[in-house]
Amino acid sequence: MIIRAENITKTHRLGEHTVNALKGVSCEVPHGDFLFIVGPSGSGKSSLLYVMGALDEPTSGDIYIGEQRMAALTKKQRDEYRRLQVGFVFQSFNLLRNLNAIDNVLVPFFPQGVSPQLRKDATTLLERMGLGDRLLHRPNQLSGGEQQRVALVRAILKRPAVILADEPTGELDSQSGAEVFRILRELSSEIGSTVVVVTHDTRYIEAGDRILKMQDGQIIGEQTA
């Protein structure tokens, strides 16, 4: 799936101040690409990621998912897009504290009901991530690396067309961070997902295919890894 951003702007209001997080950003992420978006804090990289994932709406400009203009999607279709096409990974893992590891992985499917096959797939993936003995543990019983692996499985289980990761190694040590990228690369290749990773940590960018550099809400450069 190709994700295309055309002249995206995003303006936030912070009290009396207006912050222009994105200032006319245009870019394209081809199918199967593993893209890093790097830049300092406040450069607008997370804002771009959220707009791509339909977690937020741009102030102006258009996002296209393939040929489909996202602004033309109904709310329900955007929900469907997030549910079926996009897998999110966040910096602070964002697991639900009341659910155990397996339920955290399956939570996107709760409204529709979890089939035994899906539960089996989730278990298999978690075991593959080395979490076979952690299935029934709650987030507060897991290490940071383990939590992020659970979050990765949650993002990947639905075999999404796009995986969007926001600072996925931000709260991990370098070893765990490297492990996360190794897994992300491996699983996304297996299922043919497009991956967009936002980070200000350049230690792992060699794992990607392309790198977009952002600063002050604009893309200031692009390079191939």
């Binding site: 977690l55 997030r82 549910r83 996009v86 939570v107």
Partner: peptide, 19 residues
């Protein structure tokens, strides 16, 4: 609030959260 954000990011609709 963050929990609902996560659920929505994972495809939960407003109706699902409401329920």
């Amino acid at each position: 609030v963050i929990e609902f954000g996560i659920l929505k990011a994972n495809g939960w609709t407003n109706g699902n959260v409401l329920r």
